[in-house]
Amino acid sequence: MTAALSDPGEPPRLRGDLAIWVFILAELLAFGVFFAAYAVTRAYNVEAFNTAQAGLDRNIGAINTLLLISGSWCVVRAVQAARADRQTPAMRWMGVALLCGLGFLVAKVFEYQAKFALGLTMDSDTFHMFYFSLTFFHFMHVVLGVCILAILLFKLGRGAYGSHDVHGLETGAAYWHMVDLAWIVLFPLVYVMR
């Protein structure tokens, strides 16, 4: 992993709008507080948390992680293609990213359905309160992220992004990576670690 592969002459620059980065910080703060609340509560209910956690579907969790990571990678490739004015590949990458996001949502719905079928809800116990709260809070972010990707795809199709302007594209991409980042911590924390 070597660093500095970009143009060395280019000054440091934040990709995407400053406003989205302020927003991302606020979002990460919310996730961070939620994670901390989970971890602190678990520390005093280790047995109950471990038992309840064993019932989670780690397969779907892992598949969802793969989907989000791959989605993020596709978005990176889409941005790179757009910067090089290769519009068709950019759209293709963005389309696959969108499918990854939708796939995440579908998998999550199946996962929830299985939980509801067992009669588990937010009121079942503290672990499931956190499990549903955290994953649902994240789920809503994926929904928003998917909407953003759809808009980016639509605008790519209209030729809005290219070497002349990728500001909007980078802004939306940054948000999607944040959704990915939050899940990367969420998955081991809630599904696996014991």
């Binding site: 970009s6 440091p12 620059r13 990709r15 990176v76 980042l181 911590v185």
Partner: peptide
């Protein structure tokens, strides 16, 4: 994974410190 997302995907490797 988090560091990779932050530095490479979010491209913060080339952002202000």
């Amino acid at each position: 994974k988090g560091v990779l997302v932050i530095l490479d995907f979010m491209e913060l490797r080339h952002a202000p410190l």
